[in-house]
């Protein structure tokens, strides 16, 4: 009988786990939808900005963010990890990718970490930033300002963003994107356009906009991947609990049957003895 009670208790605890994983899945799905739609709105904005930059057809000139430095001695890595765990291999595979990247780096390197998960898991970061679950343009702007300052101060000659690139809901793969120095699109045709106040200021403003857009799109892509990874992980966790419950129920029925059989044979045995 003790066995029966133990099995019943296990079923109960698995059921409550299922409840948790199911609700985490729903939350992740809602957040995924939110970041995905923010992503598509951001893309239309970034597309327009890129189009304007193309139509300006400007050369990099002496824009401080486009000019390549003669010597690139220091590189700053900006690592975007998740805000929480429980999202499959999302954080760990990114961290592994980053460690390989950093060990193969000969230059002096700095590390900035974005995301709450990195707070406890990653050591040796110069600075840490909190990024919300659905990053806004304002958050991207603040971060861009910090990174731009780091670059112009000469503390870094190159800034590389390391994040999980979003392929689909089921697959994300770690990758990098160089933020600074910025590479301008080539082959733009300069039309007959009035520039107000002048070409240099317009280009400077556009470069600023493009940098912000790059950061914002990376933040959104990373977060979209995180929510997708968590949703996938929680879906399979919920499926596993279903399976476990079915197995345990079967085991419970076996045990109950065995108990009944024993009881009957005891009664029959007792009656025969009289």
């Amino acid at each position: 009988m003790a066995n029966l009670r133990a099995i019943r208790m296990r079923i109960k605890s698995v059921e409550s786990t299922r409840q948790i994983t199911k609700s985490m899945k729903m939350v992740a799905a809602a957040k995924l939808r939110k970041t995905q739609s923010a992503s598509s709105r951001q893309r239309s904005f970034a597309g327009k900005a890129a189009q304007i930059l193309q139509s300006l057809g400007a050369s990099a000139g002496d824009n401080p963010y486009c000019r390549r430095r003669a010597e690139s001695k220091k590189v700053c890595y900006v690592l975007l990890v998740g805000n929480r765990g429980l999202c499959g291999t999302y954080n760990h595979s990114l961290l592994r990718f980053f460690e390989e990247l950093r060990s193969g780096e000969e230059r002096e390197s700095l590390l900035y970490v974005l995301g709450r998960w990195g707070r406890d898991q990653i050591t040796g970061a110069e600075r840490r930033f909190e990024i919300s679950d659905a990053p806004t343009a304002e958050e991207a702007r603040e971060l861009t300002e910090t990174l731009k300052k780091l670059y112009t101060d000469g503390a870094a000659d190159e800034i590389v963003l390391v994040y999980q690139q979003f392929k689909s809901v089921l697959s994300q793969s770690p990758g990098t994107k160089t933020l600074l120095p910025l590479r301008l699109p080539e082959g733009g045709e300069k039309g007959d356009v009035i520039l107000e106040p002048d070409e240099k200021s317009v280009l400077d403003r556009l470069v600023e906009l493009v940098l912000q857009n790059t950061v914002h799109s990376v933040l959104l892509e990373g977060r979209t991947g995180e929510h997708a990874a968590r949703m996938t992980a929680m879906t399979s966790a919920s499926d596993n609990t279903e399976e476990l419950i079915a197995e345990l129920t079967l085991e419970l029925n076996h045990a109950r049957q065995a108990a009944i059989t024993t009881e009957i044979s005891e009664i029959v045995g007792g009656a025969a003895a009289i």
Partner: peptide, 13 residues
């Protein structure tokens, strides 16, 4: 800067 119909192409900060 005012922009009306038929304005010449322009980029401005």
């Amino acid at each position: 800067i005012g922009v009306l119909k038929g304005h010449a192409p322009m980029l401005c900060n």
